[in-house]
């Protein structure tokens, strides 16, 4: 647990440092009268970031000096379970840019039904087609809400 705790806190320190650098111009109360109300755009983010930085430093120090604690991961099983969810999720999200929401969501549902659920192919097919079709009906037709379309839509081949 300890190295992860320290690393997390240090990551927060890094983010806060970037934010402080970016908004340093407005860090002080303005007395020249150029900023409305005496507080510039950067004041609020700078001091929020400052508190994050300070607290993160305290957390980092305490975890570093503190006990090792329980292990961060409970065996490989847990890590694999998480990765099995994360990888398809990230791949699917990125793929939406080219393949649109409907094709990706069908494949994503199908993948889970077959891979995790071990359903027979009929069910897999049903979910692959049925889920996007239901969403298309509700959103595009029912409420006229447009979700991302595939490159085939731009080419005029498919309606989604």
């Amino acid at each position: 647990m300890r190295p992860y705790q320290v690393a997390t806190a240090v990551a927060f320190m890094f983010v806060a440092a970037v934010a402080m650098t970016d908004s340093r111009a407005g860090a002080l109360v303005d007395t020249t009268g150029t900023q409305p109300g005496g507080i510039g755009a950067g004041f609020y983010p700078f001091w929020s970031a400052f508190v994050v930085f300070t607290c993160a430093a305290v957390v980092a120090y305490r975890s570093w000096r503190g006990p090792e604690g329980a292990p961060a991961f409970e065996g490989r099983e847990g890590v694999y379970s998480v990765l099995k969810l994360v990888v398809p999720m990230v791949v699917a999200t990125v793929a939406i840019k080219w393949f649109g929401f409907y094709i990706v969501s069908g494949l994503y549902m199908g993948l889970f039904a077959r891979w995790i659920g071990r359903y027979n192919w009929l069910w897999v097919l049903l979910l692959t087609v049925g889920m996007p079709a239901a969403i298309y009906g509700a959103f595009e037709l029912g409420f006229r809400v447009s979700l991302p379309k595939s490159f085939l839509y731009d080419l005029g081949v498919l309606p989604f």
Binding site: Y108, M109, L111, F112, A113, G117, R118, M131
Partner: peptide
């Protein structure tokens, strides 16, 4: 079931 609910 999980295999449907989670991706949903």
């Amino acid at each position: 079931p999980y295999a449907i609910l989670t991706p949903f």
